[in-house]
């Protein structure tokens, strides 16, 4: 393993960390590729699971799923460790860093000192890479930041042992082994098919295209909610889940478009370039949808029908991409 660490700026924390760890372990891979073969893309709308009173809206698979899927698809050996107390977690991390390892960590966002105060919320599934240490703390490559950052020992302990949903329990991971031969083409085909099947044919009404339909019906019902502020907060919440939390724009759809265009080169299939630009348009439609939600949040006159119509357009154009991809018989 090489000693020098090169920080790279990514859109999303988990795919960024996986890409960075793999690249440094000797298998260069882009963030979009890690996201794509990790089956990161999805849509889920869970009204029963509440985040600060708002339904869970997710544009990607649950935390750790990218790491685990990439591990499986490429046949890597990843070591994940959890700890019962901060002392042993910190000592172990220092040992690994001293041995020249680059370590992926799961942390909370709220306790990370380098995050801007406005952006600190209780979200426990953030990922970053620790690549060294100095006298006061660890040197960190947080993929969603433009430049490397630092965190003092105590602050990082707190972030690693935050409690609540997805409590990290000090989780850290390292890539131990990469197989000599990796069949990237096979991994790509499997991943694309799986994502298409999930989005099109899910049996669950809150996942995939059906989930988008469910959110649309919920938006249409907003005017009947007893609290006046609710509709505005609800639409703001959707925007945050789609654009704020490191999605690369358009709820990961633009990142997936980047993945598809890379696949076109790896597999030598021109049609995937078409799929990529179709997916790019989907991403743009989601951004138009976010824009129309934001007008409503500002307290301007708005109609839920118009917003729901924008969402329907996202859903329909997404369906066309998945059907097109299925038609390629990869």
């Amino acid at each position: 393993m090489s000693k020098a660490f090169v920080h790279s700026h990514a859109a999303h924390c988990e795919s960024g960390v996986v890409s960075s760890l793999l690249t440094h372990a000797g298998y260069p891979i882009s963030e979009a590729m890690a996201f794509g073969i990790g089956n990161g893309l999805t849509f889920a709308y869970l009204p029963i699971v509440k985040i600060d009173g708002m339904p869970l809206v997710a544009y990607r698979m649950p935390p750790k799923s990218i790491l685990k899927t990439v591990e499986k698809r490429l046949g890597l050996e990843v070591k994940i460790k959890k700890y019962s107390n901060p002392q042993s977690a910190r000592e172990d991390l220092i040992k690994m860093v001293d041995a020249g390892k680059f370590v992926g960590l799961q942390t909370s966002v709220f306790y990370l000192p380098y995050f801007p105060p406005e952006m600190r919320f209780h979200f426990n599934a953030h990922n970053l890479v620790v690549y060294g240490k100095n006298d006061t703390g660890f040197l960190i490559s947080d993929p969603v930041f433009e430049h490397p950052v630092e965190a003092e020992f105590n602050a990082l302990d707190k972030a690693r042992f935050a409690r609540g949903v997805f409590a990290p329990k000090g989780a850290c991971y390292t890539i131990e082994k990469i197989p000599e031969r990796i069949d990237l083409a096979k991994a790509i085909k499997k991943a694309i098919n799986r994502t298409c099947n999930m989005m099109l044919y899910t049996p669950f009404p809150w996942v995939g295209l059906r989930g988008i339909g469910m959110m649309k019906r919920a938006i249409l019902k907003l005017p009947t909610h007893p609290h006046k502020r609710y509709a505005s907060l609800y639409l703001g919440h959707i925007i945050r889940m789609q654009e704020e939390i490191g999605t690369g724009g358009g709820g990961f759809r633009l990142m997936y478009a980047a993945f598809l265009s890379e696949c076109a080169e790896v597999l030598g299939r021109e049609e995937l370039k078409t799929a990529s630009s179709m997916m790019g348009e989907v991403g743009d439609k989601w951004r138009v949808f976010a824009l129309s939600c934001s007008k409503a949040c500002k307290g301007n006159e708005y109609s839920v029908e118009e917003i729901a119509q924008k969402l329907q357009e996202c859903r329909d154009s997404e369906e066309r991409v998945y059907r097109f991809l299925k038609g390629l018989k990869l």
Partner: peptide, 22 residues
């Protein structure tokens, strides 16, 4: 026609949503 990472200094739509939550 290729997708690439590009740096953005922020989108007012996103800013509005975050500040609303704060």
């Amino acid at each position: 026609g290729k997708f690439e990472i590009t740096q953005s200094s922020g989108w007012s739509v996103e800013e509005m949503a975050t500040l609303q939550a704060v």
